[in-house]
Design a protein around this nucleic acid. Sequence first.
DNA 1: GATACCGGTATCCTTTGGGATAGTAATATC
DNA 2: GATATTACTATCCCAAAGGATACCGGTATC
Lengths: 130, 130
Amino acid sequence: MEAAIVKEPETDHPCSENACAAGVSGIRDAVYVLNGKWKLPLIFTLTEGPKRFKDIQRSLGDITPKILSKELKELELNEFVVRTVYSTTPVTVIYELTPYSKSLKQVLHELRDWGINHRQRIVNSRKTKQ
Amino acid sequence: MEAAIVKEPETDHPCSENACAAGVSGIRDAVYVLNGKWKLPLIFTLTEGPKRFKDIQRSLGDITPKILSKELKELELNEFVVRTVYSTTPVTVIYELTPYSKSLKQVLHELRDWGINHRQRIVNSRKTKQ
DNA sequence: GATACCGGTATCCTTTGGGATAGTAATATC
DNA sequence: GATATTACTATCCCAAAGGATACCGGTATC
């Protein structure tokens, strides 16, 4: 993982509709920072409040520590998450969302609802098929 | 790509908060079907109306035909996209969104806005750093 | 006859994502 | 003294994602 936080701006693709390119690259930019299997679930679970490493691991179900560690570092780099160490014994490490990542609230909300609904749709369609 | 359209339901992780697990797996389910670099941009570009293979390729900027073909097939399987062949000479192939995929409208809308905003934020922060 | 367009395939390759497993120091608990 | 917990890191490995390049048949255009 390099220090690069955003990829370079898209080469402007010639596009007949003006709004088109802007819309597509908006989506692409979002997908670029929120890529992978874990970032959105991870951010979502932190919307419930600050959590410790192990707690996050439990919330997410089956993420390995290596992956979780990597994801958290990327989210720190991109200023979604802040990591704080408390000198208790043993040390306590707290991860919490930055104010900026609150801007993802609507996205997460919509995505969660859609996901829940989508699963239900599949379950129903399986039932009617039998 | 097998016929599997959804992964099996999450093993229920024991989770103190009730809403927690549901929220996280909602997100995970959504991410599971919308994974990768291209699916969301692809669906988004089709919200502008039905398009031909080459047109989609142009809208997306730099996707190779192999990848585009694969993504379209997956979206067909998951009932987001319908492919129609017209017997013109040469044949015309039209891809368009299903009514179901219209349910992604809010998600796409939020994500696009967020992405546009996020890029602007980065650009600004680069300026102030110089 | 050469070139270009359309809707893809085929082949090859590199990168990454992500999982499995083990181990670490420091402390607390039985 | 053995075991558990926390917050990780290290090592190894595999599969999937995705890109580069070339090519195909059919048609239209120059």
